[in-house]
């Protein structure tokens, strides 16, 4: 078997804020088509880790290696700023917890989706419009809202639009920060089903940061548990949730009704 190389290899990633630890000595690999869940309570270093991975926050130590479409390994933080920007535009997507951070609230839904296509070189207006419509449908939004601006949408619709905006340019790797946070339960369930279908259909790889173990159970193949900036447990999602080893993971799992 000619196993493909990992898409992402994280080695000893550390980020400190002065003397305070953001995340410390985090290592893992992510293979094509795999979803990794990162769980832990607030302040455990999940978001710091995600920001270092997604090229938004420079780590204090360690490496982030990304294998591009041509099989080339790129040391993300040793690469030039333009190279990093190119990766973010062509290969990666980032879904923020707050849609306001990922959308342009003043321009239409269609433009929010189309913009990403133009950023990767698409110029034909008709084609962009059609693609925007296709993605509106895929994320289950009414086509007659395509010319409305996101500030007129509900939180759930904004989040679905953000997902469409991210996936339209066919990224290989998507980073998600609490993608269902702040949504009410029925809207959450719908969004999760949608995400689950999309990542399977598109063969996406993703790193999903969440404090919700049910989200992890549904979406992630593997998970890591963080506490005070360090990884305390890592493994298959169902193994970590059904047979947690570390006292902190046991506490997390026993604190909820149905993980």
């Amino acid at each position: 078997m000619d196993a493909p190389p990992p898409l992402l290899q994280i080695e000893g990633l550390t980020r400190t804020y002065g003397r305070r630890i953001g995340c410390k000595d985090v290592s893992f690999s992510l293979w094509p088509g795999e979803i990794l869940g990162v769980v832990g309570e607030s302040g455990s270093g999940k978001s710091t880790l995600l920001n270092c991975l997604s090229a938004k926050l420079e780590p204090t130590a360690g490496r982030v290696l990304y294998t591009d479409r041509h099989g080339r390994a790129i040391d993300v933080w040793a690469a030039s700023e333009p190279e990093r920007r190119m990766l973010m535009r062509t290969d990666w997507g980032i879904v923020h917890q707050n849609p306001r951070d990922g959308l342009r609230m003043g321009v239409s839904a269609g433009a929010n989706i189309g913009e990403r296509l133009m950023a990767v070189g698409e110029r034909h207006y008709g084609g962009i419009r059609r693609e925007a419509e296709t993605w509106m449908r895929r994320v289950e939004m009414d086509l007659d809202r395509i010319d409305d601006a996101p500030f007129t949408f509900s939180g759930g619709m904004q989040q679905r639009l953000q997902i469409a905006r991210n996936l339209v340019s066919k990224p290989r790797l998507v980073f998600m920060d609490e993608p269902t946070g702040g949504l009410d339960v029925s809207v959450q369930a719908r969004l999760l089903d949608l995400l689950r279908g999309l990542v399977t259909d598109l063969g996406l790889s993703a790193v999903i940061v969440t404090h919700d173990l049910a989200v992890t159970r549904l979406l992630a193949h593997r998970m890591i548990v963080m506490r005070r900036g360090e990884v305390v447990e890592a493994g298959l999602t169902d193994q970590v949730l059904d047979d947690p080893q570390h006292p902190y993971t046991q506490l997390l799992v026993s604190s909820i009704l149905h993980p």
Binding site: G235, L236, D238, Q239, D242, D243, Q245
Partner: peptide, 8 residues
Amino acid sequence: RCLYGNYL
């Protein structure tokens, strides 16, 4: 469950 890798 051990056989399936669900328990460690």
